[in-house]
Structure formats: structure tokens, C-alpha cells
Lab assay of single mutants.
Amino acid sequence: MTFKAIINGKTLKGETTTEAVDAATAEKVFKQYFNDNGLDGEWTYDDATKTFTVTE
């Protein structure tokens, strides 16, 4: 399945996608990506659209 992340950061904005077997796996991938890029913020997840949003 394809999962999307919308990034609303102070220094980084945009979208990225990942292929994962479930939402928990996708969340781990996205959180690692955000940690690697120095992002920290509020997380939400919309199961209907398979979209994570992080707002810094």
C-alpha cells in the first residue's frame, strides 16, 4: 500500500510517499525520515486517505 506524509515544518514543507504493508510500518519509516531531517511536531493520521500529517 502507498502511504503519504504531508510535512508542515518550519524549515521543510512538502509531501513524500512510502510503500508499506501497514500504517504502523509506514509511520516508522516517516518518523525516521523526519528525525533524520530534524523535524519534530504534532502527528495526525487519516486512515481513509492513508495520509500522515506532521505540523511543526
Rank of each mutant, 00 (worst) to 15 (best):
M1A: 08
M1G: 07
M1K: 08
M1Q: 12
T2Y: 07
T2P: 05
T2N: 05
T2A: 04
T2W: 12
T2V: 14
F3G: 02
F3N: 02
F3P: 01
F3S: 01
F3M: 03
F3I: 01
F3D: 03
K4Q: 06
K4T: 14
K4D: 04
K4N: 05
K4A: 05
K4P: 03
K4S: 05
K4M: 07
K4W: 12
A5H: 02
A5R: 00
A5W: 08
A5G: 03
A5T: 04
I6P: 02
I6N: 04
I6E: 04
I6L: 07
I6H: 05
I7A: 09
I7S: 05
I7T: 05
I7L: 11
I7Y: 15
N8E: 06
N8T: 06
N8W: 13
G9S: 11
G9R: 05
G9C: 14
G9H: 11
K10P: 12
K10E: 11
K10W: 13
K10L: 14
K10R: 11
K10A: 12
T11M: 11
T11I: 11
T11E: 11
T11C: 15
T11S: 10
L12E: 11
L12M: 13
L12S: 11
K13Q: 11
K13M: 11
K13E: 07
K13R: 13
K13A: 08
G14P: 06
G14Y: 15
G14T: 13
G14W: 15
G14A: 12
G14E: 07
E15M: 11
E15L: 08
E15P: 06
E15G: 05
E15V: 10
E15S: 09
T16A: 13
T16I: 15
T16W: 15
T16M: 15
T18Q: 04
T18V: 14
E19R: 13
E19A: 07
E19Q: 14
E19W: 15
E19G: 03
A20K: 01
A20I: 01
A20Y: 03
A20C: 07
A20E: 03
A20M: 02
A20S: 06
A20G: 02
V21L: 13
V21K: 13
V21M: 11
V21D: 09
D22A: 01
D22N: 07
D22M: 00
D22I: 01
D22Q: 01
D22F: 02
D22L: 02
A23Y: 10
A23G: 03
A23P: 07
A23H: 07
A23M: 09
A23S: 09
A24C: 12
A24L: 11
A24I: 09
A24K: 11
A24Y: 09
A24R: 08
T25C: 07
T25D: 07
A26W: 02
A26L: 02
A26V: 00
A26P: 00
A26R: 00
A26F: 00
E27Y: 15
E27G: 06
E27W: 14
E27I: 12
E27A: 09
E27Q: 14
E27N: 03
K28R: 11
K28H: 08
K28W: 08
K28N: 07
V29G: 01
V29S: 05
V29T: 08
V29R: 05
V29L: 11
F30P: 01
F30E: 01
F30A: 00
F30Y: 00
K31R: 14
K31S: 04
K31Q: 08
K31I: 07
K31P: 00
K31Y: 04
K31N: 03
Q32Y: 04
Y33D: 02
Y33H: 05
Y33P: 01
Y33A: 04
F34L: 10
F34Q: 02
F34G: 04
F34K: 03
F34A: 14
F34D: 01
N35C: 13
N35A: 15
N35I: 13
D36W: 11
D36T: 07
D36M: 11
N37S: 11
G38K: 06
G38W: 08
G38A: 06
G38V: 06
G38I: 08
L39N: 06
L39R: 04
L39K: 04
D40H: 13
D40G: 10
D40V: 14
D40L: 14
D40N: 12
D40R: 12
G41V: 11
G41W: 15
E42N: 09
E42L: 09
E42M: 10
E42V: 13
E42R: 07
E42F: 12
W43F: 07
W43Q: 01
W43M: 09
T44C: 09
T44D: 09
T44M: 07
T44S: 12
Y45E: 00
Y45I: 02
Y45V: 00
Y45H: 00
D46K: 01
D46M: 02
D46E: 06
D46Y: 03
D46P: 00
D46F: 02
D47R: 05
D47N: 06
D47F: 06
D47I: 07
D47Y: 06
D47S: 09
D47H: 08
A48M: 11
A48Y: 09
A48L: 11
T49N: 07
T49C: 04
K50F: 11
K50C: 05
K50M: 09
K50A: 06
K50S: 04
K50H: 12
T51E: 02
T51Y: 01
T51I: 04
T51P: 00
T51G: 01
T51W: 03
T51R: 01
F52K: 00
F52G: 00
F52V: 01
T53V: 09
T53S: 05
T53Q: 05
T53E: 05
T53K: 04
T53H: 11
T53C: 06
T53M: 11
V54G: 02
V54P: 02
V54K: 02
V54I: 13
V54Q: 03
V54H: 05
V54W: 15
V54S: 02
V54C: 05
T55G: 04
T55Y: 13
E56I: 15
E56L: 15
E56K: 04
E56H: 08
E56V: 15
